[in-house]
């Protein structure tokens, strides 16, 4: 983050796998591409060796991302990306492990793995792309679908309350929690850079657009209209302090939510035990 040099505009082309056929499989205007760009530029800014990065993903639209990138990648079962990533980190503690996951992948099917990865505070960066629906399988309601929103499984409005992944991760014990949107790109890149540098479990929730299912069923418009919607609905953390709880409903508080640099990290603690037993 300290490097003041301006990046080139074509830096991300160096990190794409050339044999893969572009354009990508995502819908036109999908926010996943913007998050992918932010992640690549963050890695380039930090000057990591690309052999030291492992990208782990589960199933879903977001989980197609490691396929296009020139890092070590692991494409695993639905929801189990964090469990596999824990194993990778445990076997290779020097490696930077990044988990790319979606809201249905991390919070519904992999909810248990998610809270226990937070609880252990293992040094993994988890980028959770939240598009409020299951995009790949046809727009079913996910744990983050807002109340009264229409999806293919809730055609008359969602009666459930939605999860707040940032609050969940914070209370489960994650040591870095932040939220960004695909509209606020410079902040998103800063958050991802800080999360990669942080030692401990870091969660970056990115509010993204699924105009193909969530946007079309709820009449939110196309991709540029949904990005404009994120601009209107986002509130910074400083502003949100002075706002009432009712005003903040259906809005996103963006920025760094929580950082704890004192909490011990899982791999370090385990290494201490190994050294102790060796005598």
């Amino acid at each position: 983050m300290a490097t003041a040099e301006k990046q080139k505009s074509d830096v991300m082309l160096d990190y794409l796998i050339p044999q893969k056929k572009f354009p990508s499989v995502w819908c036109p205007g999908c926010g996943n591409g913007i998050v992918m760009g932010a992640f690549i530029r963050a890695v380039d800014k930090l000057e990591y060796d690309r052999n030291d990065i492992a990208m782990v993903s589960g199933i879903g639209c977001t989980s197609r991302m490691p396929v296009y990138l020139d890092f070590n990648s692991l494409h695993t079962m639905h929801g189990r990306a964090l469990a596999f990533a824990t194993g990778v980190k445990f076997a290779q503690p020097k490696m930077k492990v990044v988990v790319i996951t979606g809201d249905g992948d991390a919070l519904a099917i992999g909810g248990n793995h998610f809270i226990h990865a937070c609880r252990r505070n293992i040094d993994i960066t988890c980028i959770l792309i939240n598009n409020h629906t299951y995009g790949m399988t046809g727009g079913q309601g996910s744990p983050t679908t807002p109340s009264d929103a229409i999806s293919t499984t809730t055609p008359f409005g969602n009666v459930e309350k939605h999860f707040d992944p940032c609050d969940l991760a914070k209370s489960a014990g994650a040591s870095y929690v932040a939220r960004g949107t695909v509209y606020h790109y410079p902040q998103l890149e800063k958050i991802i850079t800080a999360a990669l540098e942080h030692k401990g479990f870091s969660l970056v929730e990115v509010i993204s657009n699924c105009h193909t299912y969530y946007g079309r069923l709820n009449k939110k418009g196309d991709a540029p209209a949904m990005l404009d919607m994120f601009k209107d609905l986002s509130v910074t953390k400083a502003k949100a302090k002075n706002m009432e709880q009712e005003e903040l409903e259906n809005k996103f508080v963006i920025g760094k939510m929580h950082e704890d640099n004192v909490k011990t990290e899982f791999c370090d603690e385990y290494k201490k035990i190994i050294d102790k037993q060796k005598g």
């Binding site: 505009s9 991300m12 572009f22 990508s24 995502w26 530029r41």
Partner: peptide
């Protein structure tokens, strides 16, 4: 201003001077 190429989801846009 960089807005178009950082928000392009398909990496189509690059600058001729940067």
């Amino acid at each position: 201003c960089t807005i178009c190429w950082v928000h392009c989801p398909d990496f189509c846009i690059t600058s001729t001077v940067k």
